[in-house]
Computed example of a mutant assay.
Amino acid sequence: MKKRYISIIKTSIIISLFIIPLLVIYINSGYNLAYAAYVEGNCVAYYKDKEKVTDIYNKILDKNKDIKINEGIKFERIITKTSSLNNYDSIVSNIKASLDKEVDCLVLKIDEINLGILRDKDRCEDLFNLVKEHYIRVNDLNKEDIINTSINNNIYYIPYRAYESQIKTPEEIYKVIKELDSSKENPIMSVNIIGIKNDIEDIKEDTTIKSTDEYYMGEFKVQELGKEGKRRIEKQVNITNAKVISETMIKEEIIEAPKNKVILKGTKNPIGTTISFLERPSRGAITSNFGARWNNESHHGVDIAGNTGDPIGAALDGVVNKVGYDSIYGKYIKIDHGNGIETLYGHCSSIIKGKGDTIKKGDVIGRVGSTGRSTGPHIHFELRLNGKAENPMTYMK
């Protein structure tokens, strides 16, 4: 026992007298105690802090989860020159290089376009899901409402051998697709989505027109204001990328019923009053007035100048009761407005409406021309009450 203590004391004396001074000499001479780090059998770093190198290694693996590891990271205690110690960037680069092995993988081809190298079909499916999710968001759909999604393109998986550094992640390929799509008229990938969409829609109010002799023809009064309603609809949508191909209504719920607008339409005969109830058929100048002419003839209407092809608007609501041609009026159209009131539009180059058509004030019924007895393009416009010509200028706005 006494001998053992003597031996320990001798060893301590040797360490104190020889080894510790040598270490001090090394350190002071530009040498350091450090660790040599090995990844997959390759030395990747000389560094003092083993935990720091391990942390760098683990972070690289976290970002490259598909890398297959055989040996992992190992350390060996060494003494090395201070100048030989690695910095952070060189450690990262060396670890990545050591992990960069040639492996089996796939080239993904969509139709005629090579999108890049991916690890396997599972990673390709991850890419497809990223693209599908993009179009689900674009179309404002909820994931839980999706019935089916599919890729319409031709998909090719081409076996390949590549280094780990050449293999792209689904996110990297997705970014490339988005950049390419931004410069193309048609997206690279055609995604079909079938899902359920819920919307709130406005219901347009109807207009109810009631006839009344309280007002003159051409006069309208709003009796009741209308109001739009609202409905909740559920429909199945069939979408390709951002284009709706078809919609099928599944369910409808009225949230608020619309209220009809009620308009009173005057029917009282305005002839003989000062009411301006006629819309001017054209904005042209009056070139010939109503009444007697220089050759003792009577002009039964007014002539309004215009260019061939200019639109002719109806002066009042009514129904077309005659479309024809004669040597005086040329091509003409006549409208019955009720209460024995009619208007006629002559010398037309063409007639747009037909007999029996319902006309609203301002509707285009024909085009200005110079047919019949005419010296140039214009409209001959007449107003008649029970067949008797009246001066339309008295009632035109």
Score class of each variant (00 low, 15 high):
T149Q: 06
K168N: 13
E112K: 02
D126R: 08
H134C: 07
S150E: 12
I95P: 01
S183Y: 09
R161W: 11
V191D: 01
D100F: 06
L180N: 09
D100C: 05
P159T: 01
I173T: 01
R161E: 12
D181V: 00
T207F: 09
A162V: 13
I188F: 04
D111G: 01
K168V: 04
K96Y: 12
Y174G: 03
I173Y: 00
I146C: 06
L99K: 03
N152H: 15
E112F: 10
L118C: 05
I110Y: 01
I177M: 03
V131M: 04
D104I: 05
F128K: 01
K143Q: 14
I113K: 06
D111K: 04
R119H: 12
E133Q: 10
C105K: 01
N153F: 03
K175P: 04
T208S: 15
E205V: 13
N148R: 14
I136F: 08
K101P: 11
K175I: 05
E164C: 10
S150K: 07
M189Q: 04
N152K: 14
Q166L: 10
D126M: 07
S93G: 13
I136G: 05
E172V: 06
D100T: 06
L118G: 01
D140C: 12
I209N: 15
I146Q: 05
V107C: 09
N192F: 10
E125I: 10
S93I: 14
Y135D: 06
F128W: 07
I151T: 02
Y174K: 07
L106T: 04
K96W: 11
T149L: 04
L99R: 03
K204D: 12
N153L: 11
N198H: 14
N129H: 08
D181R: 01
G116L: 00
S182R: 04
Y156H: 13
N139I: 08
R137D: 15
Y163L: 14
K132W: 12
E133P: 13
K184W: 08
I200M: 10
I188Q: 00
C124I: 02
Y156D: 11
E112R: 06
V107W: 00
E112I: 05
I117S: 02
I194M: 13
K109I: 09
I200Y: 14
M189N: 02
K184Y: 12
K204T: 14
S190W: 00
S98K: 02
D104M: 06
Y163Q: 12
C124K: 00
D126A: 12
I177H: 02
I200T: 13
D122E: 14
M189V: 00
K101W: 09
K96V: 13
I136S: 03
N148V: 13
I95C: 00
E102H: 08
E185A: 10
K184V: 07
N114H: 08
R119W: 07
K132E: 08
D140S: 12
K109Q: 03
K143F: 06
K132A: 07
D122W: 10
S98A: 12
I146W: 03
D202A: 15
L108D: 00
I167H: 02
S93P: 09
N148C: 11
M189C: 05
N198C: 10
L99D: 00
V138G: 09
D111M: 05
T208A: 12
I209Q: 13
D122Y: 14
D120F: 04
I203Y: 09
I173M: 02
E164M: 07
D202K: 14
I117T: 08
Q166D: 07
G195T: 05
L115D: 00
N153V: 07
I200F: 07
L108K: 00
I147C: 11
N198W: 09
